[in-house]
Write a protein that binds this DNA or RNA. Sequence first.
DNA 1: TTTATACATTTGTACCAACAATAATTGTAC
DNA 2: GTACAATTATTGTTGGTACAAATGTATAAA
Lengths: 138, 138
Amino acid sequence: MQDHTRTVINVFYTAHNIENKIADALKPCDISIPQFNVLRILKGQKGHPANLCTIQERMIAKMSNTTRIIDRLIDKGLVRREQCPQNRRKVEIFITSEGVELVDQASTAVAAVEKEMINKLTSGEIDGLNTALTKLRS
Amino acid sequence: MQDHTRTVINVFYTAHNIENKIADALKPCDISIPQFNVLRILKGQKGHPANLCTIQERMIAKMSNTTRIIDRLIDKGLVRREQCPQNRRKVEIFITSEGVELVDQASTAVAAVEKEMINKLTSGEIDGLNTALTKLRS
DNA sequence: TTTATACATTTGTACCAACAATAATTGTAC
DNA sequence: GTACAATTATTGTTGGTACAAATGTATAAA
């Protein structure tokens, strides 16, 4: 296999591996990674609601999917959706108290997994990794 | 945001970005990345067929999904499926001449994208990246 | 004011992935 | 040789993602 292919596969494989570990950590909370991300963004709003637009900007996925991810969070009672009174095109998403409780629990579990992985690298290696990844995308 | 979270997101974001670039390169060939991977494995068999098992081992996806990915390649006339005469539980997958032609074309396009990205890094950076990624998974 | 354009979100379609359950075949123990 | 387990592949279900088209609302232009 050629050098460039090997490195690309390494990035894929690692990302996939990390995703699996985080998904496993979220399993007791019964939420997916995208659902966790939405909850985390909403919690960061500190009580204020967020439009779909705002949520979308901070997620990797496309807008059209954000609607459906939120549908599932509503089914679970973790968020609430209301039409924005100032601009009725917009929709405001609120996190519920159940949602806050769950995202706190989930964050602890995810942070533990992340730390365990990152601790395998020196701080120099972490810097190098971040620099290389950013260059790859540029 | 904490350091470990930032690095994990960087890996995700980069992997996603690379996937998008490769998927775009495959668009003219009208195949997805998993479909391309199956074709590449079959071409590597150099004329011999491969069981689902064998294909599965070299892919990230689960067995159950490999069946359906191959269904789509059959629809496009790129591969053929036959029951293995020695062990009728097994299924042999053959690549067609149309499949070989397409995978050659696709490989060229993908390799170009990969090279363009990797060329942004020095060979030292590539080594460091590979080492760091492998450590992350270990 | 009517028309056009842009914005914010939703819906439809096709594909991929994880997981569980099932079917068919083969291997093994007795 | 029959009962049971293991292997190989398929199917069903749920959730995620990309892309295109559609809906409803707001704003600007004629």
